[in-house]
Amino acid sequence: MATTTATTTTATAAPVAPATPKVANKGRMTASWHTKPSSEWTFHERSLIWLGVATANDPSNPAPAPPVYPKSAPVPVYPVWKMHRYIAPRALGPLLVHHFFTQYTGIQVPVWVATTLYLAYFIVYGTQVFAWNNAMTTKFGTFDGAAGRDGVPDVDTTSVALGLFMVVISRATIAIPYLYEPSAPVLDWYTVAMLPVNCFMFAVAVDFWFYWYHRLMHEVPWLWRFHRKHHTTKHPIAALGAFADHEQEFFDMVGIPILAWLSWRINFATWWVSTCYILFIEASGHSGLRGYFQNPTTWMLRYFDAELCLEDHDIHHRQGWKKSGNYGKQTRLWDKIFGTQKPRIEGTPDNINWDDPMDFPAPVPEEKKE
């Protein structure tokens, strides 16, 4: 795909109006629980606040509304290197600490200790990813921004909170005891050198199995009932990746990762790094963040018009049962090969502004918040 620079500059693409938060939507997606006094929150609602899924309603210091841009406004670019800058240190950090601890002390970390520590870290990492998405969408807005975004529904705060924790817990407690070998080096030069190749291939393998499982749920009538709930949201936020029926959640959390690993075998360290990248893309893919934002492990597919961008899954959610398309999770490779790729609306090649790189917003000093 050609890297065409849009002729319209961001100076002519000012927001048209503040977004209207979906606080009390009609029907199934009504989300007003976070506006109640904190004393009335349930344990799971408190968990969602802690995870950064929602912000407590504070009339004295209301959260800023994200900007809304016309669909013709140039779409800024979030460079791949900035994604690596965010994810790579967080993914490699625990491995390096573990590796050097073992090398310099000679102590082999038992499986149960490694599982517990990596799981705890993965939960913290997940909260950082949600916070990152919230900050970015507040600053840059979302695709189809005039429609606003759905929050976690009042009737599903428990299931979403449990789903988010289970995504992390299930992947860690299944994979780590199987892949981690206390007597083997955590990192070696071959593992590090092959990380780009193996992360790419594992993402493509994840995508192959997800593509067919996802497509079949859309196109086989009796399977749609297991996916219908997830499509109740037409404009999801990052947390609503876990808004699904139990059957879908099980296959997402267990089935797909196992099938992907059987298709492309990787060791523990490579699995850990890949999983940190996959979680980041899964959460961001439901955020609707308005930017040309590729998967950093499969970005090279852009040259074959098969890269995945955030707008692709956002368009998928706006569609109905058999006409959604864009079934991929990590790439558009299988959508392209099997003819289910849908055209982008805002992030078209001639509307991407490569001269406008996005950046993570700087924290607001406390004195400026008052």
Rank of each mutant, 00 (worst) to 15 (best):
D154M: 08
R228V: 11
H218A: 10
F165Q: 13
F226K: 02
D156N: 12
R225Q: 04
I176P: 02
S183Q: 06
T138P: 04
H227Q: 12
R149A: 14
A244D: 07
G163S: 03
G163Q: 05
L162I: 15
S159E: 11
A135V: 06
V167F: 10
F140S: 05
M201P: 01
T233C: 09
G126N: 07
D207C: 09
F143N: 11
E247G: 15
P236E: 00
Y211F: 15
L216I: 07
G151M: 03
V220C: 14
A131Q: 06
R215T: 05
H218P: 13
D245L: 04
H227K: 12
L240T: 01
I237H: 01
R228E: 15
H235E: 13
G163K: 01
G148P: 05
Q128G: 08
P196F: 04
D207I: 09
G145L: 06
A193T: 10
M194A: 11
V167K: 06
S183I: 00
R149H: 13
V167P: 00
P185G: 04
V160Q: 05
G151C: 05
R171F: 00
A184D: 15
A175P: 04
Q128T: 08
Y178T: 14
D245G: 10
R228W: 05
M136G: 11
L195M: 15
T233L: 01
T157S: 13
G126C: 08
A135I: 07
A147I: 02
W212I: 08
L216Q: 13
A161E: 09
A175R: 04
P236I: 00
A172Q: 11
A184R: 14
T137P: 01
L162Q: 03
Y178Q: 07
S159I: 03
L187W: 01
W209M: 10
T158Q: 13
T138H: 08
P221C: 06
V220M: 11
F208I: 12
S159L: 03
L187K: 06
Y213K: 10
V124K: 07
V160T: 03
W224G: 04
A242H: 02
P177M: 02
P153H: 08
P236T: 01
L179C: 06
T232L: 13
A172V: 07
G163M: 02
H227A: 11
A193D: 10
K229H: 03
L240P: 04
A135D: 11
G151N: 03
F165I: 11
F143E: 06
N134Q: 07
T232G: 14
Y213A: 15
R225I: 06
T138L: 10
P185N: 05
I174L: 14
A131E: 11
A175F: 08
G145C: 12
H214E: 11
D245W: 08
H218V: 09
R171H: 06
L162E: 05
T127Q: 13
S159V: 02
V160G: 04
L240V: 00
E181K: 15
G145M: 11
A175E: 02
D144Y: 07
P182N: 09
S183D: 10
F226I: 09
A244H: 05
A161M: 13
A205L: 10
D154V: 09
L195G: 02
L240I: 05
E247L: 10
